[in-house]
Structure formats: structure tokens, C-alpha cells
């Protein structure tokens, strides 16, 4: 099967600081991939590059055969680590907006998830709690039938009880053929759903493996391996 994301010698610098240094990756369709690394390892920079929110300093990045741009934005569903909702809108209005701009947006799915999380669609976003806003955002992102989902710290801000629901939501709402990249440092929480892992450190890929390989070869959990690799 063709790969969804490839990068060759991808680098990004901010002034003298190298945030990403010669990244080479080839990610396949239909996988759930953990992008793991300590704070400041370049996870968010990588995800922002994939979303055309940053321009690479050098190297090449392609998603579905295209460099980041309009074509890739149509097939990529992105959850940033912050709230990006226009707070003057009602929940139903932001859903309408997603429906307007993304042809792959599934409205029924969105309303269904809102109902299950008992979020009132006619409520103003301004009045929602921080956790609820994050849930709305996740619903918007997962209601798209995208080919690549880029989730930046999707469980960072919510309580452990909601984490399970969110992981279920992620699992239950993506096409078999789609790939999900989840960036986080809360590894033990998401370990059970991952197929592959990428370890990032100081802007470089230090390890890419499937979770099965890690268990077979190292006889360890991803969490344990992470603690070993990134031992301070």
C-alpha cells in the first residue's frame, strides 16, 4: 500500500536552534502511530510542518503525494494542542463551519458524539469549560473522514476518566485506511491502541518500531522503553 506521509532530510530551524534535524520517515496508511518524545523534542514542530503552519528550512515533506498545501489540508484532520474555536460561535455554528469547508465532514457523526457527551449544540462556545471545549474540538476533528489525523496532545488537558472515552472516540471514528499520528508524552495511557512508535529526541528520530517488535524483541512495554531511552 502507498504511504500516506514521507519525509526526506526534513529540517526546521528557528534562528540558530534546530527544532528538527534531518528527519526521514515513511508512514503507511491504516496505522495508529505514537509520536513520542520529551518536551521540546520537536513533536509539535513536526505536526505543524505537516499542517503547513510552518515552512521547512530544508528537506522534503509529502502527504498523500503532495507538499503541504490546499490538497493536503483537504485530507488531513488536525487537533492542535490549544483551543482554536471562535468563542462567539455556538457549537452548532462551528459544526456548520466545518461542514462548509470540509467536504469529508460527517454531520450526523458530530451530533451523535455531542449527544453522547451531553453537550448542548445551541450553547455558546464561550460558556463551555476548558475540558468541554477540548471535547468539542476532538469531536470536530474526528467527525471528518480524513486520510490522516494529526492529534497533538489529545489527552493532555482532560481528566483520566475522560481519556478512555476520548481514546474510544478516536478508535471508533476513523476509516480503516486512515492513519492517525498521536503526539504525547503520556505513553502508558495510549500504549494499548498504538501500532507503531516514533521516538523523537532533540529534533531527531532516535527509534521507529512497531509496538509488537518492541514487545517481542525487548520484552518491554513502550512506556518502559521510553523511560530507558530518555533516561535523564
Amino acid at each position: 500500500m502507498s504511504s500516506i506521509l514521507t519525509c526526506n532530510n526534513l529540517s526546521k530551524s528557528f534562528g540558530n536552534k534546530k527544532a528538527l534535524n534531518n528527519i526521514n520517515l515513511n508512514l503507511e496508511r491504516g496505522r495508529i502511530i505514537g509520536l513520542l518524545g520529551p518536551n521540546g523534542s520537536g513533536k509539535s514542530t513536526f505536526i505543524k510542518l505537516c499542517n503547513d503552519l510552518l515552512t521547512p528550512t530544508s528537506g522534503e515533506l509529502q502527504i498523500g503525494g503532495n507538499a503541504p498545501g490546499i490538497e493536503t489540508k483537504r485530507i488531513v484532520s488536525y487537533l492542535p494542542e490549544r483551543t482554536y474555536l471562535n468563542d462567539w460561535m455556538k457549537v452548532s455554528e462551528i459544526i456548520q463551519m466545518f461542514q462548509d469547508f470540509y467536504p469529508d465532514f460527517n454531520v450526523e457523526k458530530a451530533y451523535d458524539m455531542l449527544k453522547r457527551l451531553s453537550i448542548n449544540p445551541s450553547e455558546r462556545i464561550k460558556t463551555l469549560s476548558k475540558g468541554t471545549k477540548e471535547k468539542v474540538q476532538l469531536i470536530l476533528v474526528m467527525s471528518r473522514e480524513a486520510q490522516l489525523y494529526l492529534l497533538d496532545e489529545p489527552i493532555g488537558g482532560v481528566d483520566p476518566a475522560a481519556r478512555d472515552y476520548i481514546l474510544d472516540t478516536i478508535l471508533g471514528n476513523y476509516q480503516e485506511n486512515a492513519t492517525i499520528i498521536i503526539s504525547t508524552h503520556l505513553i502508558s495511557d495510549i500504549e494499548q491502541i498504538l501500532d507503531d512508535i516514533i521516538f523523537l529526541q532533540n529534533g531527531q528520530v532516535v527509534l521507529t518500531k512497531t509496538v509488537d517488535e518492541i514487545r517481542d524483541e525487548n520484552g518491554k512495554s513502550v512506556d518502559t522503553l521510553f523511560r530507558e531511552v530518555f533516561k535523564c
Partner: peptide, 15 residues
């Protein structure tokens, strides 16, 4: 709307 947090949404729209 473009350079604040909302920019994350605006600039990831296929526009």
C-alpha cells in the same frame, strides 16, 4: 483570527 489561536483553525482550512 489569523495570528492568534484561531489561526490554527483558519490556516488548516483548505483555503
Amino acid at each position: 483570527n489569523l495570528l492568534g489561536d484561531e489561526g490554527y483553525l483558519m490556516f488548516t482550512l483548505p483555503v
